[in-house]
Amino acid sequence: MLKVENLKASVEGKSILNGIDLTVNAGEVHAIMGPNGSGKSTLASILAGRESYEVTDGSITFLNQDLLELAPEERAREGLFLAFQYPVEIPGVTTTNFLKTAVNQIREHRGQEALDAVTFLKLIKEKMKLVKIDDSLLSRSLNDGFSGGEKKRNEIFQMAVLEPKLAILDETDSGLDIDALKVVANGVNSLRNKDNAVVVVTHYQRLLDYIVPDFVHVLYNGKIVKSGDKDLALKLEAKGYDWIRENAELAT
């Protein structure tokens, strides 16, 4: 589904990613872990199409297309979704309001008919239960005055409505208490199936107790320095990132 090869990227001339290779197949969950500043969020942002990064080398293929050639909205319509680390506040725009446009854009792209108001509301109601989000939140301005937990739940709610093929969760666990974490994880798990994939970007192992990954990759200095199964995450939790640092420095 997703193939990242030798991806190098920089921001304002500063090199952040130094050759990433990553393959994600349908039905898989990948976790990308790493210390602060290792490039985790940069990778997520580049996948979603944020323009402030410059890709200097390498390629990304998503569903047999050159992802880097696609505008952010084209990526979304192809089925890529980024749950933001810091969801933006947009006064005056409600979740329901913009999500209807988003859903119908994606449906149009897939050659499906636009949803009418009633069907759309039914869809919304159904997905609301998944992340235990209520009406009042959706009719308020997007993320405006939302708590940290509400913002993250709203991201997963949008994911549920848009039904992406590849979801990238960028530090969705940060700022969540354990109850909210479970709600978010349950939401993600119930959306998993053999045709879609999830990439979880996180600093801590905690979320991975609930969203169990098939693969864990450790990012350090803009490179994946270690890959393994879910035990790698536990090992990292026990030994800390210093263990990775030492190993990485030994290797160079």
Binding site: E73, I90, V103
Partner: peptide, 17 residues
């Protein structure tokens, strides 16, 4: 960018904002 990442094109996103 947020709105575009959800599938709205640039014109729709700026129009909505």
């Amino acid at each position: 960018f947020y709105l575009r990442s959800r599938g709205l094109d640039e014109k729709q996103a700026t129009g909505l904002l």
